[in-house]
């Protein structure tokens, strides 16, 4: 059995001249909560659609639970809960959707469905089209959870939800699902939410995976270093980005902070500050659009 719940190798998707995915390599360990981060249009949904077999890749390969996406689509769907577009059958009530859905999954649990409906306070007798956006999302999640999957793949599950509902959803995901050793792969551009629950993150931008690492490793090894001096290095494998302004050079380092600082000092540079970085800062560095895209959490 593969140790990885999701594995892609050079996964590519081309729409005419546009590369929606460009040789993306994703590795999601079993039991992990993996935050797949990217701006709108970065390629997150395209990757998820390929994993679900809704869209074929134009290059590379993708495996889910050791099965080949596309070819083994049915088996993948039996063992994986997908929440992609938050749109079910609009004229059915929650209760009818549960009845409709359960027939597809031998591992379906009515008890689980009822528990989530109660816990998430979903009005199950209301038609889907008449539910609020939050309740729609919760119902989608309920259906995915009650099928008792080994892996949950969620596309922007918390987008445009209020903080209370977001908190409810995240708690259910972590406490009820992931704590049982199952895997969550969740795309988002809400960095603070991902930072709260994920243990792995992948950052994608313009169809290219820029970073994939354990969140703890990122927190402990990524540093922002400000330096003044004449002979500061411009290239090193550890340097993620470099920028200079008014005699101050700023590095974002992905590893080897101590050695790098020592080398700087040996070269006569003055190290002004060494700062730890949060996920949001790293995301902005990698996505490289800091001036155009400042999330609220950074401003706060």
């Amino acid at each position: 059995m593969s140790e990885l719940a999701i594995e892609t190798h050079a996964l590519s998707k081309q729409y005419g001249a546009l590369a929606a995915l460009d040789r993306v390599n994703i590795h999601v360990e079993r039991g992990a909560i993996y935050g797949f981060l990217g701006r709108n249009g970065a390629g997150k949904t395209t990757a998820i659609r390929i994993l679900a077999g809704l869209s074929p890749a134009t290059g590379g390969s993708a495996h889910v639970l050791g099965l080949e996406a596309g070819r083994d689509r049915i088996e993948i769907l039996q063992r994986t809960g997908f929440v992609i577009e938050k749109m079910l059958l609009p004229y059915m009530t929650g209760r009818e959707l549960v009845r409709f859905n359960k027939g597809f999954f031998p591992s379906w649990s009515d008890e689980r469905a009822k528990r989530y409906a109660d816990a998430l306070e979903i009005p199950m007798d209301r038609k889907f089209k008449k539910l609020s956006h939050g309740s729609k999302t919760k119902l989608c999640l309920l259906l995915a959870l009650a099928q008792n999957p080994e892996l949950l793949i969620l596309d922007e599950p918390t987008s445009s939800l209020d903080p209370v509902i977001t908190d409810q959803l995240l708690r259910v995901l972590v406490e009820d699902f992931a704590n049982n050793g199952r895997t969550i792969f969740m795309s988002s551009h809400h960095l603070s939410e991902v930072e709260k629950i994920a243990d792995w993150v992948g950052i994608i931008d313009n169809g290219r995976l820029l970073l994939e690492a354990r969140l703890d490793d990122i927190r402990s090894t990524y540093r922002r270093i400000r330096v003044t001096g004449e002979r500061v290095p411009s290239k090193s494998p550890e340097i993620l980005t470099t920028s200079s302004s008014e005699g101050v050079t700023e590095y974002v380092l992905c590893a080897g902070e101590e050695k790098f600082v020592a080398d700087l000092r040996n070269n006569g540079a003055i190290v002004l500050e060494v700062l730890p970085m949060n996920l949001s800062e790293i995301f902005l560095e990698l996505a490289g659009k800091e001036n155009q895209h400042v999330p609220v959490e950074t401003m706060a």
Binding site: R49, L54, I74, L77, Q78, E85, L88, P90, F104
Partner: peptide, 9 residues
């Protein structure tokens, strides 16, 4: 609702 329907096994 196609993506819901076609993610049924």
């Amino acid at each position: 609702s196609g993506s819901f329907l076609f993610t049924r096994p």
